[in-house]
Amino acid sequence: MSTPILSVRGLNAGYGDFQALFGIDLDLPEGGLLGLVGANGAGKSTLFKAILGLLPRGRDMVTFRGQPIGHLRTEAMLRLGIALVPEGRRLFRSLSVEENLKLAAESGRRGEWTVTRVFDLFPALREKRHAASTALSGGQQQMVAIGRALVSNPSVILFDEISLGLAPIIVNDVYAAMPAILGSGISAIVVEQDVERIRRMADRLVCLNEGRVVLSGPTGDFTKAQITHAYFGE
């Protein structure tokens, strides 16, 4: 197997005295889509925060293209090529739609993804480009959040809870953009509560329970029952 684009080895992380992750191992192959599942509080968002350096982690616990990056600051991650679509969207409230995208475009890398191309991918955003980000529907906000990751031209995007709080039909719209995103050579880790959907999309699956990896491997290796089992930690 060629070197994974992003690897996590023996990652421990937490908040102050509270340890939330215990020895996490995880590999994201180049061009792959890794589904990350687990119940609330299993440590999925914490794992993303630790990868990005929003929580302290050791130098060698995270490697990117084979190089240790655990000692780098969060703000260096985007330029390195790791972008985040955060849980709950977390758009910048006092920035317009276009400003949200511009901010990421300016601090990220140059490449094929531009603000214009994001508007092509999500035409609904073009007409609202000058609107306050708070004035958008949930689905449109999610599109801005995804666009904000794309315009930095990342190699890896960490998607946290794409469909949380969105109507099913909107979720389909949002996921409809996935092929275009992956087609441009981006690798992704996707946190998704809808296990059926993630099984259809992901090449590999990792399931967390109480801060530990309880299941990990190619998606085809597991039945739905096995995943559900691991998910609930039974």
Binding site: L52, M77, F92, S94
Partner: peptide, 20 residues
């Protein structure tokens, strides 16, 4: 923009490459 983004949500601003 960086000022306002930092003010809104400094954690996400950092993830968006802003050296807060």
């Amino acid at each position: 923009r960086a000022f306002r983004a930092t003010s809104d949500d400094s954690e996400i601003a950092r993830a968006m490459g802003v050296n807060t």
